[in-house]
Design a protein around this nucleic acid. Structure first.
Lengths: 142, 142
DNA sequence: ATTTTTTACTTGCTTATTGAAAGTAATATT
DNA sequence: AATATTACTTTCAATAAGCAAGTAAAAAAT
């Protein structure tokens, strides 16, 4: 378990107390890009998170109000994770991190076309994504 | 030592491979707020980083080109750390994290007035700070 | 000139966290 | 009824964090 005590009153430090690790923001990323995901979906991501860590991080993010777990329609085993409003508000930070990495790390991302959109018009992309995620109050499974 | 291999080509993931921990961005924060700092200054920060971790993170951040270490004027023991251009470009992400924490974590920051400025006019603050840090090519010690 | 202090680390050790693999229990599918 | 999914949990070795103490060079004080 990750300890949840704050090292200081600094909002950066307190934020890092929650998601300052190598995995938490990747979960948020997946929920941003794919809207909703099941536990199994997360394990299929490129970075191959171990299942114990995934379970731990999902729990912490849920406890902190960043994601919420919904029942999967017509299935009692599956769950559906989505970003809560708090989690949606993390997207600006995530985008800045993505832009920094894209510019400074020279690892071409083959993941998805989202970066191209971001670079073309950041505030438009941000608005679109955040609206889309916020509007999604009923569950859709494709 | 932290391993420096990339888990994937995703720029978010690759960024977190570098600074996805509880300490690295606090070092960047201190350099953003105080412009330059010595090793000892970092140990005096509120969060009380252990010296072995501090030395390790400074080394990693220097290796990755995010900070640079300069000689302290008229002193052969001290060093002076400052943000490199790559590090300065991390400030937008840092600001978004600060804003998120400030809004969602309800821990009042008593650190400094920078958050008030950010909230009043984000892009102005950003421009000011980044310019101030970029302009500082000769070393000033107060 | 010698002692003391400051500064920037390094080392050793204990505890906590990570990561890989396997296991489990409930439901779903065939 | 048998097999397969799904979402975890458990185990355990490896790595990293965190604390305290130690060190070496230079600076400041006496």
């Amino acid at each position: 378990m990750k300890s949840s005590e704050n090292r200081s009153g600094c909002p950066i430090s307190s934020s890092l107390d929650i998601f300052g690790d190598r995995w938490s923001l990747l979960i948020v990323r997946d929920l941003m890009l794919y809207k909703t995901r099941t536990y199994g979906d997360f394990t299929k991501s490129e970075e191959k998170i171990a299942t114990n860590i995934l379970a731990n991080r999902l729990q912490i993010l849920e406890d902190k109000g960043i994601i919420s777990k919904l029942p999967y329609p017509d299935n009692k085993v599956k769950g559906l994770y989505k970003l809560s409003p708090k989690g949606i508000e993390l997207i600006p930070a995530l985008i800045e991190i993505a832009l920094w990495g894209d510019k400074n790390l020279s690892k071409p991302d083959v993941r998805s076309p989202y970066l191209k959109e971001v670079k073309k018009n950041k505030s438009k992309f941000l608005k679109n994504v955040m609206e889309k995620l916020s509007a999604d109050d009923e569950v859709n499974v494709d």
